[in-house]
Design a protein around this nucleic acid. Structure first.
Lengths: 338, 338
DNA sequence: AAGCAAGATGAAACCGGTTACAAAAGAGCA
DNA sequence: TGCTCTTTTGTAACCGGTTTCATCTTGCTT
């Protein structure tokens, strides 16, 4: 087994104290160039690698950040993660990855684990909104206990309004989508959304509502479908939707999986996207774009969001105090045909 | 700021030594139930969380594993990662995630960083094959220096034959795909592959070769396309392929991105999958399945691979010695129409 | 009541770095 | 040569846990 060398071994061999070796390591202060070279050579020879663990302990700070997101299988978060990794790599940060699977309990456990590991910052998309007093109290404790800067991504529940956040202007995104549909002549526009107990769903709903109102189209409750953002649920709702007697001629689907759920139901009926049933989804679905399926969507640059989030986090790590920043990115509409 | 409590604070408050607190923490050996309770209560009150860093240092072992993969944006690795996370979560392992972007240099840097962090195990898909002597020597040093068990995923270059590995029987996958195409009457079967300097590409090529041979179809070099596994490259090759005068009637695409590249070229020409031009891809493309695009593919359960890999790694961490295990998973063919 | 083993606890060293402070070695100058 | 003032280096404490070994209580046995 390759014996692990420590700073002591190097010191002994170079006939200096460990303090000096440490100085060389941090190429700090005044070390005689001659000494420095000698020490470096020995480190090289022995393939010495300093222990990040020991360093973190003594410095009382680490170079690891945590990433905690709710849906590992959603391409949106996948891309976001890519953006994060891109920057992390540049800044030499190590990323500890956790997944909450939309469960408050896993969220909690992940936060505890992250606390144990004394991360220097967290990128966080909360699993839920934490609306009740007791939930708020608990999440608040967990987050402050972390004792590290936190940047929220994608969603900012009211209970977490004191943190930095990078998100998209979904309200406008959906608003414009609805306007576009109506502009194309659709009067019966449905929305496939999650239940309104989530900020995310509420925001999106507001865009929809506002567009209808502005266009003087009465909001029909039966065209508002609320489930969650998972494919299977959306699929079920879409089946209902598609078999209504007075069925909508257009649908807005509020995330990737929802879009797929809708499409699944549609194609299973032997139908396809057409003027009879138009759709605008939230987020691109690459494969559909490629085969020119003419699936319309509201594009959000998730990678960019990841980059910006980590950028913000670094700033915050540099100077922990300072005004809270909320970056809101603008989505853009990609329409093929309505 | 929430003051951070240490084991010392707890010890003082409970009027015991830190050794005792440590014992309670590890709920080890003999601590008088009474004492134990008292200490636990104080830990509870103070919301004390032991430092994983300190623990790792003193125990000389951590509970973090490293995951190093080459293509973060390939859904195959995305799913694999899901499988890994699923098990990591169960085993209470923390995952440090690195991405090599198919670059040997990033691979190297990631391995160094992982060494610094004294991970207790690594799940690794090498960025390249490391075929030259000097490359082999370097990667070998890096990996042994890690001084932690390693399980390879997806590919096992010859230079790394002494490690555990979980992979798919791609040869058989491609072989069966080719057989199926030929069985359906196709005589001009092309393959869209990467250059044969990679094991992965060689293995896949072998399957193709073997099927043709078995069916007595002479292998035509002009139907063998070699690039890399990125979409853009495949797209370029596919354009060539599709505009050949004596063009193939069937294509095998050797990974996700290759399939998309091919489809892009195809649809850009205004064509679609048909008996004139059939295709079998490696790996499912979810969206296409959903809209019943009849895209045929060789299915590989990447999630399962992730699970198995981490399973193997845990075993190896338990007992570092013991025979090398190579798990080979079987892909299965999904054919809609040829 | 003495003897002894088992049970509970504490003292101190250790893990591998960092860093404040002190000390030694040179350099410059009168 | 002796006296500062820098540079360069070393000593030792510290970070927050774990663990070995010794010590101190117990209760049990006879």
């Amino acid at each position: 087994m390759a014996k692990e060398f420590t700073i002591n071994d190097i010191a002994r061999e170079a006939c200096v104290s460990k303090a000096t070796v440490s100085r060389v390591l941090n190429n700090s202060a005044s070390v005689k160039p001659e000494t420095k070279l000698r020490v470096q050579q020995i480190m090289e020879q022995r393939r010495f690698t300093p222990s990040a663990t020991a360093r973190s302990l003594s410095r009382q700070s680490s170079n690891s950040i945590g990433v905690l997101v709710p849906e590992i299988d959603n391409p949106f978060f996948g891309e976001m993660f890519q953006g994060i990794m891109e920057i992390a790599d540049k800044k030499n940060l190590v990323v500890m990855y956790f997944n909450s699977d939309d469960s408050a309990d896993k969220d909690r456990r992940a936060l505890l684990s992250l606390k144990e590991h004394r991360i220097c910052g967290l990128l966080y998309t909360p699993a839920m909104d934490y609306t009740t007093k007791s939930q708020q109290k608990e999440i608040d404790k967990l987050l402050t206990d972390l004792d590290a800067p936190i940047v929220l991504m994608d969603r900012q529940p009211d209970s977490l309004s004191t943190y930095d956040c990078v998100s998209f202007d979904d309200e406008t995104g959906i608003y414009e989508a609805a306007k576009a549909l109506i502009g194309a002549g659709h009067r019966k526009v449905a929305i496939l959304n999650a239940t309104l107990d989530r900020v995310l769903a509420r925001t999106r709903y507001r865009g929809y509502e506002r567009a209808l109102e502005e266009e003087g189209i009465p909001l029909e409750k039966r065209y508002v479908f609320e489930g969650d953002y998972r494919m299977h649920t959306a699929y079920q709702l879409a089946r209902e939707l598609l078999s209504m007697e007075d069925r909508p001629t257009a649908v807005i689907t509020c995330n990737n999986s929802t879009s797929l759920g809708f499409l699944k139901a549609l194609y299973e009926r032997g139908e396809r996207l057409s003027e009879d049933i138009a759709c605008i989804g939230l987020d691109r679905i690459e494969a559909l774009d490629i085969i020119k399926c003419k699936f319309n969507y509201i594009e959000r640059d998730a990678k960019q969001m990841g980059r910006r989030a980590l950028g913000l986090l670094s700033e915050r790590i540099q100077k922990p105090d300072g005004v809270i920043k909320q970056i809101i990115l603008t989505p853009s509409l990609r329409i093929y045909e309505l």
